[in-house]
Design a protein around this nucleic acid. Structure first.
Lengths: 351, 351
DNA sequence: CTCCAGATAGAAAGCGCTTGCTGCGCTTGC
DNA sequence: GCAAGCGCAGCAAGCGCTTTCTATCTGGAG
């Protein structure tokens, strides 16, 4: 029923081996033979059986991309850039590879399960994006999995994720600490002294690093932080909205709100507006990531631009072995402070 | 080096056949034996070889999802919903399936290539999202491919895409015409008589349907459309920005701008603001899709809410055979008009 | 006490492809 | 003029799993 290599071989009057070689193009085949084979392939409308090749060759052309939330542009942009480089159709790479985007939803178990699934498929490479969960047993389990994958010949790259010790994984880490530091420095420079902070989920590396950067700026400026000024939430708009209301309740004299990311910041803006506060005259707001919509917020969001697309592309190239990994297997990718309309000199009288 | 079924069998003192049956759970195996096998699997840290099973069983657990642009939340949301239903880790479905999200970038060739790649992998199902390109040869090629896939046992579902005639593909189509009609009716009801329209790429079904809905509203209200009022672009913010400037240049008396989607609308807002026009006092703006950020635009965007998540979930279930396809294999999914702050009664004096 | 159905387990034949090795015919160096 | 060398094609042995068919061993039913 389905056409196989042997059928093509028969039609082209050659051996299956020759057909295979024509299709894979890694062995000399005379031009005339090749043409005959290709014609037969065309006439029979033959499509290679992926699993069979993968089995015989002990490699596959699948590349896994793990993301926390595919509906979030933060991950979408990275996934897109990675995929652009792994040489799907239209990519410059030779062999056509299929990108498998896996949505972990931020759940450690699903992350692990997906990794196993990818291992089962003998993936050619795996790129993990986004922050990791700070949980020793889970981190160890992931590290073990990554080691296994590497052992089986799967290249592992971390993009926007802290390095995994004792692992051969290449890490392209975002300098969340540095970015957050620059952002809060900017706010302090404007004259803010009472700054609220809306973090992401407490157990994530990204959350911790950004908060650390924020605090180091505070410390450097000799500002003593009030514990009431920090609220944890999720990386979404809703969380920003609710957290802002909570922050305002706890300390109505805040003059600035630093958010875990742009979505949170946008939610914060909405809450502020509903509370009758002007941005930035009454309260300044800052985000992180510089997603496309940030510039369209009104006022446009001051934020830290992360080169998501560039980092993703680089991760993709490294995963494909088309770019040298950074020395030591670790590179820190810096963000850039984008000062826009949502931050300004505080006008409100304190207390 | 790598652990195989046989190794597990040896360790558990059973035949490979038994191990396979335990792992696939579709054949009676005595509890004690099963346990022994599972222990061995665990001890050896065995992971099934996907390609080998796929080859032997002539089926795979890959499900393809084709999207135009993974970085666009429109597709991200659908992809996420689809994936949630195809039973990746955590899903309720039994077998664990891997979702393969393919980024076509809107290119017909890549779409076809991805379809071939999926066919090669003997995908269990394929879901195509987003509008199709209106190009006869390409449509025919896609239809042929879909037929081949169906023939090979791959279930094909179209989500937010017009039906593919002569194909077994199930189609969940968005009622773009109806949504657009309702939107423009709303604007006309507010008193607008001079409405600009920013469309998407001209050769896409979505673009055409939305424009048709818009025009039918115009016609029904006895408004004769000025050809200058329509501009085609892309489905992104930038396009909205540029097209709006162009529209304003062509006819500064426009009191409303209807955009192909929310991103375009947001770009339009930016252009309007920069031109010193107030929204909606001077010009009303309307979008389409109701993506999450629309509500945060200032003023918040009047738009047509498409149940992206619901439709995606349904498409996913149908693809998995867990939900009856709609009668006739075609269902139209309606959008809901969301009236918000970006549209209002026109205040500007005409001309 | 025999016989048969039912429940488990195993043997073995592939699934469709890749690839190391062999083989053949011809150019080329000495 | 001969052997070595090269370019190209075929043979055949798997890759690791699934599954049909068969074998074995119960425990009643007759």
């Amino acid at each position: 029923m389905t056409v196989t290599l042997a059928d093509v071989a028969a039609r082209a009057q050659v051996s299956p081996a020759t057909v295979s070689r024509v299709l894979n193009g890694n062995y000399p085949v005379a031009a005339s033979t090749r043409e005959r084979v290709l014609r037969a392939v065309d006439e029979l409308d033959y499509v290679l059986n992926g699993p069979a090749s993968a089995l015989a060759a002990a490699t596959s052309d699948l590349v896994g991309i793990l993301v926390n939330d595919i509906a979030d542009p933060f991950f979408g942009i990275m996934a897109s850039a990675i995929q652009g480089e792994i040489g799907g159709p239209g990519g410059r790479a030779g062999g056509e590879r299929l990108a498998v985007v896996c949505n972990t939803g931020g759940s450690p178990e699903r992350e692990l399960t997906y990794l196993t699934l990818l291992q089962r498929q003998r993936a050619a490479a795996v790129v993990l994006t986004g922050g990791a969960v700070e949980n020793a047993p889970h981190a160890a389990a992931v590290a073990a999995k990554l080691r296994k994958l590497a052992e089986a010949g799967t290249r592992v790259v971390l993009c926007g994720r802290p390095p995994a010790p004792d692992t051969e994984a290449i890490a392209l880490t975002f300098d969340n600490r540095g970015g957050a530091r620059a952002l809060t420095d900017h706010l302090i420079g404007l004259g803010h002294r009472r700054l609220g902070y809306i973090g992401g989920p407490e157990e994530r590396t990204t959350t911790r690093h950004r908060l650390e950067g924020h605090r180091s700026a505070l410390t450097a400026a000799g500002i003593e932080e009030d514990p009431r000024w920090t609220v944890y939430g999720r990386y979404d708009r809703r969380s920003g909205y609710e957290a802002t209301l909570e922050l305002l309740r706890r300390d109505p004299s805040l003059t600035a709100i630093v958010a875990a990311n742009d979505s949170v910041a946008v939610g914060a803006c909405a809450a502020l507006r509903e509370s009758g506060l002007r941005i930035p005259e009454d309260v300044s707001v800052a985000g992180f990531d510089d997603l496309p919509f940030s510039i369209d917020a009104v006022p446009s969001l001051t934020t830290v631009r992360l080169p998501l697309s560039e980092a993703g592309a680089r991760a993709g190239r490294i995963a494909m072995g088309r770019e040298e990994p950074p020395p030591g297997g670790i590179a820190s990718v810096r963000g850039e402070l984008m000062v826009r309309g949502s931050t300004g000199v505080p006008r409100r009288v304190g207390q």
